[in-house]
Design a protein around this nucleic acid. Sequence first.
DNA 1: GTCTATAGCTTGATAGAC
DNA 2: GTCTATCAAGCTATAGAC
Lengths: 222, 222
Amino acid sequence: MARTGQPQDPVSTPQRILDAAEELFAEHGFDGVSIRQITARAGVELALANYHFGPKQDLFVAVITRRADALNSERRRLLEALPEPPTVEGLIDAFSRPFLEKSVHGGPGWKSYARLIAQTANAARWTRDIMTAQFDPIAEVFLAGMRRALPGAQEEDLYWGFHFLVGAMTLMFAETGRIDALSGGRFRAGDLERIHARLVPFMAAGYRALAEVASGNRASRK
Amino acid sequence: MARTGQPQDPVSTPQRILDAAEELFAEHGFDGVSIRQITARAGVELALANYHFGPKQDLFVAVITRRADALNSERRRLLEALPEPPTVEGLIDAFSRPFLEKSVHGGPGWKSYARLIAQTANAARWTRDIMTAQFDPIAEVFLAGMRRALPGAQEEDLYWGFHFLVGAMTLMFAETGRIDALSGGRFRAGDLERIHARLVPFMAAGYRALAEVASGNRASRK
DNA sequence: GTCTATAGCTTGATAGAC
DNA sequence: GTCTATCAAGCTATAGAC
């Protein structure tokens, strides 16, 4: 498209603002960043943030929702491609792999997005409500699949198992570096493929343990 | 002690400030709360926060560290009371039960504290470094126990399993209410005992699955 | 140890020229 | 769509009287 090596409008102003906001919100949280800092990093004037996105809260919502669609449509595609009935491992992989792929190969914006999601999901604020609106529909698809994969499990087990999975995934993709420090640098948060290779069998075994206790309660006490 | 029903200095000013700061930091994050709001909720004058705790950051550190000692000494007590070698379930229970007990029976301050920990652990900020300083020593004790409980496991499995456990615990004790909404109110984040009764077997099975794969790799490929 | 008063700065948002 | 200029409000931190 571009005729010369000189880029003409490489990225639009709204996109520059979104990218800067994503990075800074991820690092400092909603209240830890000013619109001045965002527009300065984006290389645009202060007034343009409000012109394109309205108040600061609306800009935050725009940052969250921008990547949620791409993530969830990929999740839905993988979940619907599973055999019937699906396996526990297949469900967990289909639910977690899109974030893995985006984080590893999607560019630095996806790393910021993962950190932002981790902060927001664990907060007790209006920001968390945006998250549930974005991610609860795909959670229903996951839970419906798990209901068929583990027909002996109690409903309650399916939900709390999902909660454990989400908590682990959230912390994992946030790449906080806690294990780096704890292990003296032997294991690194950036090795997402290595962690994911353990996440799937770990969570699958956990889910199965809950389902087996439920089934076992009907057959034997011990 | 008090001679009449009228309480004299029911709680000291520093404690009132800590309680108010804990509740507001948990709800809005470090940058989402002003010292004015904190002192107003505590019912003391603005200047007293700085007098007793210094700058805002030092007040935040004081809030985090106040309950960490009680929590970790109880964890250490339970971990050291385990049989030798410990069981996987025993380790996970000893590590998670103190937070459960405090959150259920310790008063509302512990609920705020859990939400604050969840926010802080998932952040990528200076606040997170305070957390690791407070909680990494007890994590070493947990990991050393798991090393004896699962002698066949790889070192890397022990660390990432711990990471999954911490992520799930963090989200669980934060009581964000996500499952309440997702389940249409059938299951509630406040039922911490019910969730904990599932956390222990779930995480134990996950840990064992990682260890069995590691042992199996030496004996057979499949 | 508590209170009043305030200095010095940053904030989100917008009005109005271009 | 972009830029300059600015407003009213809120912020942390502290000085100094009591």
